[in-house]
Every structure is written in structure tokens, then in C-alpha cells.
Amino acid sequence: MYLWDGISEFVAVAEAENFTLAAQRLNVSTAHVSRQIGALENRLGTKLFYRTTRKVSLTEEGTIYYRHCRQLQTGLEEAERAITDLKDSPQGLVKLTAPVAYGEKFIMPLLNDFMVQYPSVECNVDLTNRTLDLIEGGYDLAIRLGKLADSSLMAKPLSSRTHYVAASPSYVEKYGEPHTLSELNQHNCLIGNHNYWRFIEHGRERNFKVRGKLICNSGYALRDAALKGIGIVQLPDYYIEEDIHAGRLISFLDTHREAKEGIWALYPQNRHLSAKVRVLVDYLAEKLTGG
């Protein structure tokens, strides 16, 4: 076990760049830290730190040694947490954010079921279509739709979605249906957050600019307008797929429909997920994929 002697002190000094701060972090004396580092350097036969009155910094050998020691220490911490979590039932506060419509229809019912199953869990939910900063806002979890921006967050797929272009039978009877993307210019398009719709054309993604007499940032409002024959809409499947199957809406331009895109659970890149978040993410993935 002597091989572990001084490792915690060495990692603490390397990260704090200060013997006193490292001692405070470990709740030991500065003299103890200094002795442990000295003994470690003697055992390894090399200098790990450059020491001046103002600064402590790693030598080249110290930098290499730190990378390995940090991994070892992280592995030990994760091993202990994993064993602890096996005994722990999910409990405590989970703070999460999700898009409004998807959150209302899918996430909240599942989250409520989860709270029934695990009564010790509390939830603070922010349904918003804004992309919130998880770290700054102290969120444990975010539900995101579609393509993900590059970030340091961890992502787990929960489900998928696709977009339909559709109109009511009454609209089609009166104005016909578009057979090509360019024919959309002859129709009243019901516009959401963007004035373009997304398609695949000749194997490539294309954003096609659309025009119309209604602009609204509510998918349900646009669905209602489409059902009442006001115009053509492009919406994710969870808004209008049931209407299409029931014949209340007619889908077209299906050959230009984009491939399915992901619905994700995002969480900060912690070394080890707490039981409450880990179990919740697995629960959502199972339920949303129909597992």
C-alpha cells in the first residue's frame, strides 16, 4: 500500500499550485503535505515540483506523473461512488429543463410517474424553448431535440423525431398539394420559429424559405390552423402524426423528408452520475423508446 502514500497530497498540490491551499483542501497541516511530497520524490528519485516563494509548478516528470495519478484517483473515487449508489435509491432534488411542447406532452407525465415510483425524489422543472446553460443554472439534466451543438456535456439518446409537411383535406381540395419544393411558393405556409423549412434534396440537406399569412411560435397553434384549412404546415411527428393517420391531415413531399433526428438527455460531464440522475435518464430512455 506504500505506493499510494503521497498520491492524494501530490494531486492536491498539483491542482492548487500551492502547498497551503492543498493542505486546507485535505484538512491536514502544510508540514504533513510537504513531508509526503518529499518522501514521494525520494521514492521516485525525481523532482516533481519547481518551488519558489511565489509559485509551485509541475516539472516535466511531475506533469506526466500527475496525469496518471489523476486517473488513478478518479477511478478510485468512481469505484467508491458506484458501490455507494448500488445501495442508494434515487432521492433528493433533480433540476431539469426541457422544451415546452415536448416537455408537456412526454417528459412531464413520465417525470410524474417517476416521482410516484421514487417518493424521495423532488423535481424543479423549467419548460422553455431557450437553450439554457446547465452549469450556470445548476441544472442536473436537459432534454434537447435535434442536432446538438458541440459542448462538454454528456449526451444520451432517448428517442427520435421526424418532420412532416401536411395540410387538411379541405385545403388540398381547394388549392391542391405541392409535388416539388418550388411549388411551396404557390401556397400559404404556416410559419413557426424560422422562415424556412428543412428538407433533403438530391441527398443533401436544404433549408427552403417559405412565406405565409400566419407566423406563430406555438406548434399547437400551427396544427390548429392546418386542421382548419388555413395553410400548409411543417411540424415534428409528435404534433401531427396522429392527425395524418386519422386522415385529418394529408402528408406530402415525403421523399424530401429529413432523416430522423435525435432526442437527447444532456448532463454535465461529472466523473460519476448521482443515482437520482442516472436512474431518471435510464427511465426516460426506456419509456420513450417503448422498451
Rank of each mutant, 00 (worst) to 15 (best):
D150P: 01
D150W: 00
S151V: 01
S151Y: 01
S152G: 06
S152N: 02
S152D: 04
S152K: 06
L153F: 01
L153N: 00
L153R: 00
M154A: 07
A155Y: 00
L158Y: 03
L158S: 06
L158N: 03
S159F: 04
S159N: 12
S160I: 07
R161P: 00
R161D: 02
R161F: 14
R161N: 01
T162M: 03
T162A: 01
T162Q: 13
H163T: 01
H163Y: 12
H163W: 10
V165G: 02
V165D: 01
A166N: 04
A166D: 03
A167L: 05
S168T: 02
P169W: 06
P169L: 14
P169I: 11
P169G: 08
P169Y: 05
S170P: 01
S170M: 07
Y171R: 04
Y171G: 12
Y171M: 09
V172E: 09
E173Y: 02
E173K: 13
E173N: 13
K174F: 03
Y175E: 09
Y175T: 04
G176V: 02
G176F: 09
G176T: 06
G176E: 11
E177N: 00
H179T: 09
H179E: 12
T180A: 07
T180H: 09
T180D: 02
L181H: 04
L184D: 00
N185C: 01
N185A: 08
N185E: 12
Q186M: 07
Q186A: 13
H187G: 08
H187A: 09
H187F: 02
N188H: 10
N188L: 09
C189I: 15
L190Y: 04
I191K: 02
I191G: 00
G192A: 06
G192W: 10
N193R: 10
N193Y: 08
N193F: 08
N193A: 10
H194C: 07
H194Q: 10
H194S: 09
N195Y: 12
Y196A: 13
W197H: 11
R198C: 07
F199S: 05
E201H: 12
G203P: 09
G203E: 05
G203I: 03
R204E: 13
R204I: 02
R204K: 15
R204T: 08
E205C: 05
R206V: 15
N207K: 15
N207V: 00
N207H: 09
K209F: 14
K209N: 11
V210C: 06
V210Y: 05
R211Y: 11
R211P: 00
R211H: 13
K213I: 11
K213S: 14
K213V: 06
L214P: 01
L214T: 14
I215M: 08
I215E: 07
I215W: 00
C216T: 06
C216W: 08
C216V: 10
S218L: 08
Y220S: 15
Y220M: 13
Y220E: 14
A221Q: 11
L222M: 10
L222G: 11
R223W: 03
A226C: 14
K228C: 07
K228E: 12
G229T: 09
G231L: 13
G231R: 02
V233Y: 12
V233F: 11
Q234I: 07
Q234T: 03
Q234F: 08
L235N: 13
L235C: 05
P236E: 15
P236H: 06
D237R: 08
Y239M: 04
Y239G: 10
Y239D: 15
Y239N: 10
